[in-house]
Structure formats: structure tokens, C-alpha cells
Design a binder for these strands. Structure first.
Lengths: 214, 214
DNA sequence: GCAAGCATACCGACTGGTTGGTATGTTCCG
DNA sequence: CGGAACATACCAACCAGTCGGTATGCTTGC
């Protein structure tokens, strides 16, 4: 969801190093395939240190989803697209930002919560709930702007809540297709889908299309 | 992607029973979390039997993605939406069908290829490629109808290939959000997103919106 | 017609390594 | 001194994969 390290402070404490290792390894390999030993090695922490901070691997998963929520939430809250006066421009500006973040290999921009929930939604209720909160938290951050855009343009048949969740769904789907892409530009694959989302909003809010890719 | 068993013949040979077990277990738990022993137990096959048919767990993953491609490909090829004279109606009919398939818990309608590729895209190039082929195969099946719809309506700024991939991206994203949903109707969550996709196409192809959910 | 020869399908005990997790320290800071 | 933050050593369960073996059926030569 967020490029490596550009907005997260370098991890100093052992606990934060484990969480950063979790982001890196789980993005690339998934939750189940990432062992506690591997997390310890990557974080430069011993087994004892790991289980001092996290009661279990599952607890690490929950903590990681929460860590991810806080990091991404803070990043988007501080982003400049909020300054547009027009709510439609704020919504499109959010998607512009999401597109701009799509660079490099899939493991550098994909979503930790989306990856974890896909594997763990049945096996761990706690991880599922934490990932749901992360994804819906991202959605909620756009809901007020969408409500204002709907009110202003008179778009019918949609709700702000439904649209805000749909933005996250398209983003998650874009990540899946980017990961499936074996070519050399997984980010371009992901961008393609966010541009379709943008066009959907332009049509819905009666805006002139702004550019023409894919 | 496809409801359980409604179109797949009951597995008779040991090999097919293993593949069916793979569909069931990997949909619910993911690839890494599903052990060979578990697959054997579910399929009623011994370890020896498993490795007689599949050289490795990875080979099972590849075979499973191919099996999935063939099953879903045959199902959609035989579906009645192809009979519409209007290409736009064919496209919307495909989405209608996908919506109609969204019933029950997420593990009964989600996509094996999408689940596997999310975990394995870096760990196994063979599985990644097989999953990509499965997803892009589904996309390709709609491409001619989309090309005709674009030609007929004069929709600009989109390509049939790009739109066909986008359909699959939205479907995959809908599955992720459905899995994240802890409520009692994961299928309704998924449907919501396909209805937004439908509205996108209606706007793009200048159709009257047909109904109003979410 | 039938048996020798061989391939396919399947079995289940076994192996070496890995897993998540624990028990018992040690170190260091207030 | 006491407790938080680690480190070391270890464990039982589980992992993917191996191996020697059997049952069955098909094919081919006589």
C-alpha cells in the first residue's frame, strides 16, 4: 500500500524492528510462509526477544495490522490532496496520490492487511478483524469527501460508504493483478486499474476525463 | 470464483480428489497453510499416492491453477449471456452472472488462483505464471465482447484488453474485502463491488442504470 | 489362450529439517 | 534491588519429501 520507508521512521526498538521485518517479509511471502525465525533474523532479534514482545505469531499478526493502520492512516491524513476546495478534486487527488505511490516491484507497494486477510480470514478471527479495521479505516478517511462530492454533483444510486469501500476493493484487486504479472513492471499493472477507478468517478461526478491511459 | 461443485463433476480418480481437496482447503486457508498431509486426508489419498501424481507441493499448486482455469473457462464458455445480440448486454450479462455466483461464505466463491498468487508470486515463479494464466484467461474470454461494445458505443480512453483485465481486478478486490468482512454476509460485500463495476460500464457505454444497490 | 514382462496406481512407515513456543538465564537501567 | 529487555538452549509437533513395496491391468510373443 505504501512504498518502503518513505514515511515510516527508521525502527529503533526491537519491537519496531520486528514489525518492520513483518511488513517486508509478509508483503513478499505472505503470513503463513513467513516463520518466526525468519522474522527474528530479519529484525536482528532473538527468539526470546520476539516472544517477549508478542505472545504468539498470531499476536504479531494483529499488532502488524494495527501498526500498518497507524502508519498508512497518518500518511494519508497528512497528504496535500485535502487542500482542494472541490470535494471531487479531493477524491480524484487521493487516487492520484495512490497512483503516484505505485512504483517498483509489487512487494514494495502492496498491502500487508490485504495479504494477511486473504490467507487468515478463516484461521484467525483476530487477524481478520485487525485487517478489516485497517482496510475500512482507509475507506472511512475518504467517506466525508465522497459524501460531499455526491451531494454537490447529485450522483444517484451510490452511497459515500459504498464508494469508499469500493476504492479499497479496486486497490486490493490492483495489487492481486500486479502480483500475478510476471513482466518487469508490476506497478504499471496496478496503475492501470486505479486509472479505471478514476474514470468511474469522473463519469459518476460528471467531470471531464483528464487523461487517457490504458 | 465459482460456487462449490455446481459445475465440476464429482472427482473420481485420486488425482482429481486431490485437486478438489486443493480447491477447498486453499480457498479457506491459503496455499502455505495447507499441508500435503491435510490435502491427503481431505482427498482420502495417502502420501505415496499424492507424490505419485504430483512431483512436489509446488507441482500440485501449478496443476491446481490449471485445473481451475479449465473448470472456470468451461463454465463461462457455456453460460447463456453469450446469446445477447447487443455486446454491451453480453458484458453486463457476464457481470450479472458473476454477481449471481456470489452466495455463501467467502471460501465458497473466492478464487483459488488469486489466493495462491498473492502468497506465492515471489516464492514460486511456476505457480505465479499458472495463476496469471488463469486470471488473464478469464479476462481474455470477455475481450471480444468489450471490443465490440467500445466500437458500438464509441467509448473513448479505454481499450478492450485493459477493461477485460479491470473486470478481473475488481472481482479479486471484491473477494479480498469479502474475506475481511466479519459479518454474516460476505457475499453481499462482494456483490456491492461488482455492482459498482456494472455502473462503471453503464456510464462508459451510455446505458441507463438498471437498478440501485449500495 | 496364456503367461511373462512391464507400466500405472497406490500404500504407509520413515527421515531430516523446521515449526511455533517455552524455560531459564543474563544484562542493564532507574 | 527489581523489573523490563533481551539471550540461549531446548522441545514436541509437524513439515515436505523418500523409499521399498504391493495390487492391478495391459501388451506382446508364442
Amino acid at each position: 500500500m505504501i512504498p518502503n520507508q518513505t514515511f515510516r521512521p527508521p525502527a529503533s526498538t526491537a519491537r519496531d524492528r520486528v514489525l518492520e521485518a513483518g511488513v517486508k517479509l509478509i508483503r513478499a511471502q505472505g503470513y503463513s510462509a513467513t516463520s518466526v525465525d525468519e522474522l527474528c533474523r530479519e529484525a536482528g532479534v532473538t527468539k526470546g526477544g520476539f516472544f517477549h514482545h508478542f505472545a504468539s505469531k498470531e499476536a504479531l499478526g494483529v499488532a502488524l495490522a494495527n501498526y500498518w493502520s497507524r502508519s498508512t492512516g497518518a500518511f494519508f491524513a497528512a497528504a496535500p490532496f485535502h487542500h482542494h476546495a472541490d470535494p471531487v478534486e479531493r477524491v480524484l487527488g487521493y487516487i492520484d496520490l495512490r497512483i503516484a505511490l505505485l512504483v517498483g516491484p509489487a512487494e514494495s507497494f502492496s498491502c500487508v492487511a490485504g495479504t494477511m486477510v486473504q490467507e487468515q480470514f478463516r484461521s484467525s478471527a483476530a487477524i481478520r478483524a485487525a485487517c478489516e479495521a485497517s482496510i475500512l479505516g482507509n475507506a472511512a478517511a475518504l467517506e466525508a469527501d465522497l459524501a460531499a462530492a455526491i451531494a454537490q454533483t447529485g450522483a444517484t444510486g451510490v452511497t459515500a460508504g459504498g464508494l469508499s469501500r469500493h476504492v479499497q476493493a479496486v486497490i486490493q484487486g490492483a495489487f492481486v493483478l500486479a502480483k500475478a504479472n510476471g513482466g518487469d513492471d508490476q506497478a504499471a499493472t496496478a496503475r492501470e486499474h486505479l486509472q479505471h477507478l478514476q474514470r468511474y468517478f469522473e463519469l459518476l461526478f460528471h467531470q471531464e476525463p483528464r487523461e487517457n491511459p490504458s
